[in-house]
Amino acid sequence: MAVDRVWRASVEPLLGDLDGEQGGCPAPFFEREQKMNQTTARELAFFGRITAGFTHEIKNILAIIKESSGLMEDLLSLTKDEPFPHWERFSHRVEVIKQQVQRGVELATHLNRFAHSPDEPVSPIDLNDLTDQLVRLSERFARLKEVGLTRSGSNASIVLVTSPVALQMTVFLLLESCWNQMPAGSAMELRAEWRERHPCLLVRMTVPVDDLGAVKQHIATSEGFTVARQSAHELGGQMLDDIPDGFALLFTETRVDQQAG
């Protein structure tokens, strides 16, 4: 696999050090890996800061549009008794602007939260918040594949202490591997729950064909799913493909914030 090749290419030049002056201790490799991780974290944080800054500016623009259209609506209502042949059409358009501003604000808010993800390399993450966030950010990708994506809420608070970026990426990869293989007209539901005493993210699928098993087989053997499985493993989780109507990401070794739970 491509990932494996890259890993080998980065490790092989360092293998000599393992039996060298370090007395068998692979310190240079870990130092280099640590430095790479720090560099990646800094780069992600930079990317996040710039994106978050722009989401604030987008919200400012939306606020101007909202107040300007609101003022148009106010002025329109002040002239309700005066003759204006296009009153209804005008009023309808103002309402459309209001709705679209609200949509934009919600997207900018979620994008802002997403952009702040790399602020802390490890932090507590409520899986219910995460499902809401990811569904909002992923809806468009699924919609382009003609697959519906929703979340169902859970009353239980399930808080993991892990890398927010890696966790979101893993769940996104799982969702993406599903909608890439599901036929048009399918639907997916993402839900956080406790399963076998472990935090779990459940993806349930509804497909407009008889053979859900065959669709699942395509997903489970896809490259995207393999990467998602590997990514889940690195987070201390495991991907379960024996769920009748979907997949589960079970966090067996990931730290859980018991106080929050």
Binding site: N60, A63, I64, E67, S68, G70, L71, D74, L78
Partner: peptide, 15 residues
């Protein structure tokens, strides 16, 4: 400091 925002909002509050 967003001039267009604050002017529109001021007018709406005045109304």
């Amino acid at each position: 400091d967003e001039v267009e925002f604050v002017l529109a909002l001021a007018e709406r509050l005045t109304i």
